[in-house]
């Protein structure tokens, strides 16, 4: 399963596994998934915004001000070459870094 898909689906199990905290459950798990999703969303947004050209950037800013921002943003990002793969790569890398950092701490415990 792609990381993008897990984020889109808010797939708790996959996200916890990706972070190496699959033993968490209940409220703890929800808290971690929520924080992780928010962080990964920032990563996704950074990837998206960095991939936009000047015009798309202007359109993106304008879209944010509209009620139908979701449709407008989707229409903009659909035209960015290779963006889906760029997001996937960025998200995957971020999960790996987070997991590696956590394991480093685990080892030092």
């Amino acid at each position: 399963m792609t990381k993008t898909q897990s984020v889109l689906d808010k797939d708790s199990k996959t996200i916890l596994e990706a972070l190496g905290v699959e033993n968490l459950s209940g409220r703890d798990a929800e808290e971690v998934v929520s924080a992780a999703l928010d962080h990964v969303n920032k990563v996704i947004l950074e990837t998206v915004v960095l991939s936009l050209d000047e015009k798309q950037l202007v359109d993106f800013k304008a879209a944010l001000q509209k009620e139908t921002f979701e449709e407008e943003i989707a229409a903009i990002t659909a035209k960015v070459p290779g963006l889906a793969d760029a997001i996937e790569e960025a998200v995957q890398k971020e999960f790996l870094v987070l997991r590696a950092a956590k394991e480093r701490l685990d080892l030092k415990k």
Binding site: T4, A74, I76, A84
Partner: peptide
């Protein structure tokens, strides 16, 4: 907020996937 952010990121991802 996180909810808005999630919506924006979600829309961007869906667009990117359609684009793909």
């Amino acid at each position: 907020g996180p909810l808005q952010r999630r919506k924006i990121a979600g829309a961007a991802m869906r667009g990117a996937l359609v684009g793909a």
